[in-house]
Design a protein around this nucleic acid. Structure first.
Lengths: 193, 193
DNA sequence: CGGCATTAATGACCATGGTCAATATAAAAT
DNA sequence: ATTTTATATTGACCATGGTCATTAATGCCG
């Protein structure tokens, strides 16, 4: 049996999401409070949790949506033909992901598909990102001793690493791309065995 | 001026830590509640926060201590001469780090030196780990087109990636080492340019 | 219509981490 | 020993996410 979702439901949900986005636009992701969302949306608190498993589930949705926009941009770009250019192409996405400590935390938490069962929006975007990277890797052959899937996963790992070090007191002097660039060169164009 | 810490302070602190460890031993990391710690230690709640910035700071301490033990083990081992053996050597540490979703979350949060200013225990262990890896990399030359520091950071990135995928609904079928092994082979012994 | 079943919304309530002005204790100065 | 200062402890209180039994809409059917 289909769910038979009422129109009202969709409206309420839309109002909640809109309210959350407003708050984020005004004061950033970290500032989002369920109470405030619910107040602006004109619903009771319980309603929020009838629509979203928890606060993070809504964050996952909103952040994931945003990531998807960056991936759209990436996809409209020509495949970069050097590791350095690749790092540059990925920079805007990295910058968004690290725009707030809180945002990066949510992404880390959900990228590993935190919510055990369901695959959330962010986790989905990660799959998509790996696909885009694989496309790039097939366009220009960087190295061919390993599968492009493995290469793509590696790029992902290095992105996370470069971003994480941004928040590290010991290492935050270096810009993301001054770190990601060398990583990708070493990963995609090793000089020898 | 030195702080002139009282003996009492150290005792209280020790009681708090001991209580927390007891709870963890009995019911796991996730189960640790400040209220319960304080109850067992026989102090007021406020005392807890006079000793630790927040709950996570204590977790950082306890988990970091544990990681240090694993690093001691690693250090007492002979340097592994192949990427595969390296992955095997790192397995116990990886298993501890992923023993609970919550533990991995704390590690991720604090590895990037979450608490902006102070360098916590976990962040410190990460520095130490990189040192150990660098030692290994210098003993047997894997590849020499890049610095061993960069290589060590890469190994770290791949460890995180392999562990994160453990919690991913899409990828949790693969064992950590079936993933880490290939990563390290590709990273440390690339076959060509 | 007017009942009837299904789905949505409500808000009082709970769990838990965290704060802070007030108080008690220890160490130093007289 | 008494006063003074520094440090540690306290617990009532707050902030915020999350729950759930109850109530209200909605839509269907005769």
């Amino acid at each position: 049996m289909a769910k038979a979702i009422q129109k009202r439901t969709l409206e309420t949900r839309a109002r909640l999401i809109a309210a959350a986005k407003d708050i984020i636009r005004e004061n950033g992701y970290e500032a989002m409070r369920v109470e405030e969302v619910v107040l602006r949306a004109g619903t009771a608190k319980g309603t929020f949790f009838a629509h979203f498993r928890d606060k993070d589930a809504l964050m996952d949705l909103i952040i994931g949506e945003r990531i998807d926009e960056y991936l759209d941009d990436l996809q409209s770009l020509p495949a970069p033909d050097t590791p350095k250019k690749m790092a540059e192409a990925l920079l805007p996405l990295c910058e968004f992901m690290t725009s707030e400590r809180y945002v990066f935390d949510v992404i880390l938490r959900y990228s590993g598909a935190a919510a055990q069962e369901e695959i959330g929006t962010i986790a989905t975007t990660f799959g998509r990102q790996v696909e885009i990277l694989e496309g790039w890797l097939k366009t220009y052959s960087y190295r061919n001793d390993v599968s492009s899937e493995l290469l793509a996963e590696g790029i992902h790992a290095f992105m996370i690493q470069a971003m994480a070090l941004r928040f590290c007191a010991l290492h935050n002097a270096t810009a993301i791309n001054d770190r990601l660039g060398p990583y990708l060169v070493a990963w995609l164009q090793p000089k020898s065995g």
